[in-house]
Amino acid sequence: MTALPYFIERIAAGFPSPAQGYLEAPLDLNQLCIRQQEATFLLRVEGDSMVEAGIFPDDILIVDRSLEASHGDVVVVSLNGEFTVKELRLTPTPMLVPRNSRYAVIPLAEQACEMFGVVTFSFRAHHPMGRARG
């Protein structure tokens, strides 16, 4: 008796797909928005102090605590016991600048404040579907 091999896999009889070898992973927003996952926190925006920077109430901020904050960054700091999102200016003197002309600049010299992290992205739902999910 002769043993014959039996293949479980199906063998395609036609030409191999021309797309073979071109498979790439689908785009992943995490990969784009999150560089240091363990240091990344999400916060929800309250109020309109940053509307001129395109940050609106209910937007979600991606905050990376591993980054060093520098001049011009949008940052989250804790100020008087609550988190606030503002633009950081280091010159001529350290201050937090709201991006809404109706709000006053906050000089940092006289305030007890602590850096929470640097805002790397902000995003907003433009459709009710997105609001229901997040």
Binding site: F41, L42, R44, E46, G47, G134
Partner: peptide, 13 residues
């Protein structure tokens, strides 16, 4: 659950 639930995210003004 600040870090795991959307409705529980900490808030920033």
């Amino acid at each position: 659950a600040y870090t795991t639930r959307w409705k529980d995210l900490p808030r920033a003004r």
